[in-house]
């Protein structure tokens, strides 16, 4: 049987590479031929590298694309559809990692952990009063986008912190709301004034770009915390800056920015209750192993004639 040729043009964990090596011919990201994938790839595995319509039109052998992770905004989906090539991703694999990261960020903001560490190391503020924080137990968390990650987050804050979980997600059925155990709030603007922690877990789309901006901050409690580990662009960073500056929000943590990596002189860095991480939501050894194996399995399944799992419509 002719071996399929699969290009892995962005780095994936060794466990996935080992699996692929046993089942297909492969060209890896550090091989100069990797950029010529449109010439003869049967399968394509990507992470961040964009896939253009022009490349897709040239890639006559291509039968499957799978992204390691979620979010397919860098692939020309219309061009893939025109050619009948399924574009898949690996949802759910990193849900635990992202959920845990957002909780860690929320706690780091609430208790000024990063600020305190920074001050101690530079010999700055040693008065404990400067680090007076706030608790989260028993409060209310608002979840925007109650999908794989959002639903997991809800269970964690409920189980560990006895928090009340409310959510805004226009695409869930009533049965899904019940099964997810999250209180449905039909309008975002009704959710905002009720929450002590707002955590964003929806995709970036035309609908969600700038979704959390000045009018939304105006509706939130001045004691609330915002965490975004979904996608940059959903939160309007200038409006966030203004809200923090004017004391209309307690603090915020961002794993994702409109422009990444964010500049070290980003104005948000002036606040003690601001924490930034470098898009590390899924950056975790457990996830990488699971994800690399799954991305390879999904591509091989399609090449071997089975139905595509987790494909974009």
């Amino acid at each position: 049987m002719a071996r399929f040729k699969v290009y892995v043009i962005d780095p994936i964990n060794r466990k996935g590479v080992d699996l692929l090596a046993r089942r297909a011919e492969m060209v890896l990201w550090d091989d100069p031929r990797a950029r010529d994938w449109p010439d003869d790839a049967d399968g394509l595995i990507i992470r961040d590298t964009p896939v253009t319509g022009e490349q897709l039109r040239r890639a006559t052998r291509l039968k499957a694309i799978c992204k390691h992770g979620v979010g397919l905004e860098k692939v020309d989906l219309a061009a893939a559809r025109a050619r009948g090539i399924p574009v898949m991703n690996t949802p759910g694999v990193n849900a635990e990692a992202v959920a845990e990261l957002t909780m860690g960020i929320a706690l780091a903001v609430a208790r000024r952990i990063a600020y305190c560490d920074r001050e101690l190391r530079r010999g700055g503020e040693t008065g404990r009063e400067a680090y007076d924080g706030m608790g989260l137990a028993g409060k209310t968390v608002g979840i925007v986008g109650v999908g794989n990650i959002g639903r997991r987050i809800a269970r964690k804050w409920q189980g560990g912190f006895d928090m009340t979980a409310l959510g805004y997600d226009p695409y869930l059925t009533d049965a899904q709301w019940r099964e997810r155990g999250v209180g449905k709030v039909a309008r975002l603007h009704d959710l905002l004034p009720r929450v002590d922690l707002l955590t964003i877990h929806c995709p970036l789309s035309d609908e969600t770009r700038g979704m959390i901006g000045a009018p939304e901050f105006a509706l939130m409690k001045p004691t609330a915390i915002l965490v975004n580990a979904a996608r940059g662009g959903i939160v309007d960073e200038e409006a966030l800056y203004a809200a923090l500056k004017e004391g209309r929000l307690y603090g915020a943590g961002l794993d994702v920015f409109a422009v990444e990596p964010p500049r070290s002189d980003h104005p948000l860095f002036s606040f003690p209750t601001f924490v930034a991480t470098s898009h590390i939501g899924a950056g975790n050894i457990d996830t990488r192993e699971r994800c690399a194996v799954q991305v390879v399995e999904q591509v091989l399944e399609v090449l071997e004639g089975r139905a595509a799992r987790n494909a974009a419509a």
């Binding site: 845990e100 990261l101 909780m103 860690g104 960020i105 706690l107 780091a108 952990i113 990063a114 560490d117 920074r118 990596p261 964010p262 070290s264 860095f269 924490v275 930034a276 991480t277 470098s278 590390i280 950056g283 975790n284």
Partner: peptide, 15 residues
């Protein structure tokens, strides 16, 4: 969680 996910280290590096 901050240790497990290297949150403070990441924050410091960005700054």
């Amino acid at each position: 969680v901050a240790l497990a996910r290297r949150i403070v280290e990441s924050d410091a590096r960005i700054r």
